[in-house]
Nucleic acid binder design. Sequence first.
DNA 1: GGATGGTTAAGGGAAATCCCCTTTTTTTTG
DNA 2: CAAAAAAAAGGGGATTTCCCTTAACCATCC
Lengths: 212, 212
Amino acid sequence: MKYSVVVVDDHNLLSQAIGGLVEGFEQFSVLYTCKNGQELLDKFKDPNNIPNIVLMDVNMPILNGIETAQHLYNEFPDVKVLALSIEEDEKTILKMLRAGAKGYLMKDVKKAELEKALMEVMEKGFYHTNTVTKVLVDSLSHKEDKSIALKEREIEFIKLACTEMTYREIAEEMFLSPKTVEGYRDNIFEKLNLRNRTGLVIYAIKNKIFTP
Amino acid sequence: MKYSVVVVDDHNLLSQAIGGLVEGFEQFSVLYTCKNGQELLDKFKDPNNIPNIVLMDVNMPILNGIETAQHLYNEFPDVKVLALSIEEDEKTILKMLRAGAKGYLMKDVKKAELEKALMEVMEKGFYHTNTVTKVLVDSLSHKEDKSIALKEREIEFIKLACTEMTYREIAEEMFLSPKTVEGYRDNIFEKLNLRNRTGLVIYAIKNKIFTP
DNA sequence: GGATGGTTAAGGGAAATCCCCTTTTTTTTG
DNA sequence: CAAAAAAAAGGGGATTTCCCTTAACCATCC
């Protein structure tokens, strides 16, 4: 009996192509493919649609890889999630692993490595490349709070600071006094070591708080 | 005799997977795959390595899809380039077509459409989806200057405006008076219909003048 | 020569931003 | 409940940014 795999990727061609690869593996077969997390969760309502492994792109619209993985981890702990991404970004990798992914593959892995990863996930329960292992090790020393000291409301503010609004307008939008918003700004500048709003915008984009 | 196809994509898994799809088509076979434009051009030094169609990702390191396509168009006009991209960005599409691409596919096309596109490119010489056709038509009416005539010096300024420098510092860097630089800014705001520097930064990033 | 247009330069005033430091209110927690 | 921490708000001054206007300089074209 082959192990069943579901491929989730928002790009039709890619999910089909990757599905094609998987079909070529001795021990695996593709159950179906999905375009996003929401579609996957809908499918899971039918117990026949629950596979052994979900091979999932991290960047998807509607319900992204991280959120979807978290959901699966809570609701369907037996399903093994293997993340597939072009992002080598440390924070993304960590988020995905925290969400319970059993492995994280860059999209430039070779076909043979994909097969190996699938096998190891089924046999050992996980598969981690050197890159990912290194990120994990680094994350231990590299004290956590380096950047993640940002609070919910601050992030909300940063998003608005990435528009042409003045702080006064941002304050209105957030139902706060302009002075409070300026306080947010000053704190964030201090925390992130920034000089002005331009720096904040660039920071926000680099760290995916805001996407242009 | 099957038509030969070369797949160029910086992600190993994707080029292999897409190659796999193409191998599945009746009329086509994959000659080899490449990771970027440079590698492709190196391969082309041997006449045996010249295929009928190049299926090329637009976003690649080293030598990107647009530059590579332009090169092929000049040096190997018989080779038909079919662009493959996640970008639906109007400007990118136009650039690629200007560089001589015979078609432009989004990465979420279905397998069947890829096959159809390959066939039509061989038979008719081109294949354009509705999206692309629309972009082409729009580009006619849509007067050229929409993307706005930015001067060299202005672009230089914009790049610096995307840092934490003050205008005074930018002026020093550009060997101009602060007031001149402020003049640049005002002109650009007027041209691009912006309210402040934040807007300019976002514009610059969206239009790839500056990459964070 | 004069007209035209582009580039560079510069001024003043109003608004927004930045910076530092204090106070009040709300929430959390022992 | 009381202490502590976090969130919200404020004051005021220095700096930067925004906006509008004027002017010198230098090509080029007729």
